[in-house]
Amino acid sequence: MNCMIKNFLITNILSKNNLSSSIRQLYGRASIGLEDYEKNRQKFTLPNNFREKMIINTQDNNNNRIIFSEDLKLIIHVAQSEDLILVENMMKKFNKQNQYLRFGSYNFGPVVMRMYHYLNRPEEALKIYYDEQLEGFFDQLSSVIILMDLLYENKKYSDIIELYKTFRNKQLSFGKYPKSIMVLIFASCYKLNTAEIFDYAMNIWKEMNDIGLKPLRRITCYIAALALNQNSPHIAIELITTISNHHSVLIRSLKVLAYCAMGRIQDALPILTSVLTYDVPNAVKQIFPQDVIESVKNSIEKYGDRMVKLDFIRIEKQLKEQGYIKNESLDDLLSSEIIIASAINKPRSILKAAFNNDEKNGIRYKTLLRPGLSEIV
Rank of each mutant, 00 (worst) to 15 (best):
F8P: 00
L9E: 03
I13M: 10
L14F: 09
S21M: 13
S21P: 05
I23N: 07
L26H: 12
G28Q: 06
G28A: 10
A30M: 12
G33L: 06
Y37E: 08
Y37W: 13
E38W: 05
E38P: 00
R41A: 05
F44D: 05
F44V: 14
L46S: 06
N49A: 14
N49K: 14
N49V: 14
R51D: 11
M54N: 07
N57L: 09
T58V: 15
I67V: 13
H77E: 11
L84A: 09
E88Q: 15
M91T: 07
N95T: 11
N107K: 14
G109P: 06
V111S: 06
V112A: 11
M113Q: 09
Y118C: 07
E123Y: 08
K127S: 14
Y130M: 10
Q133I: 04
L134S: 07
L134C: 15
E135P: 10
F138T: 04
I145W: 01
L147S: 00
L150I: 04
L150E: 00
Y152P: 05
K155V: 02
K156D: 12
I161L: 12
Y164N: 02
N169W: 11
K170S: 12
G175R: 06
E196K: 14
I197D: 01
I197M: 08
D199L: 03
M202K: 00
I204Y: 03
M208F: 08
I211P: 02
L213I: 15
C221S: 15
Y222F: 15
H234W: 04
E238V: 09
E238Y: 10
S244Q: 06
L257K: 00
Q266T: 05
T273G: 00
T277Y: 02
Y278A: 03
V280N: 08
V284F: 05
K285F: 12
F288G: 00
Q290D: 12
E294H: 12
E294F: 06
S295K: 04
V296L: 03
V296C: 03
Y303K: 05
R306C: 10
M307G: 01
V308L: 07
D311Q: 13
I315G: 00
L319W: 04
G323C: 11
K326F: 13
K326H: 14
N327W: 04
D331W: 04
D331S: 09
I339F: 15
K352D: 07
F355Y: 15
F355K: 03
G362T: 13
Y365P: 01
L368Y: 07
L368E: 10
G372Q: 07
L373Y: 00
S374F: 10
I376F: 08
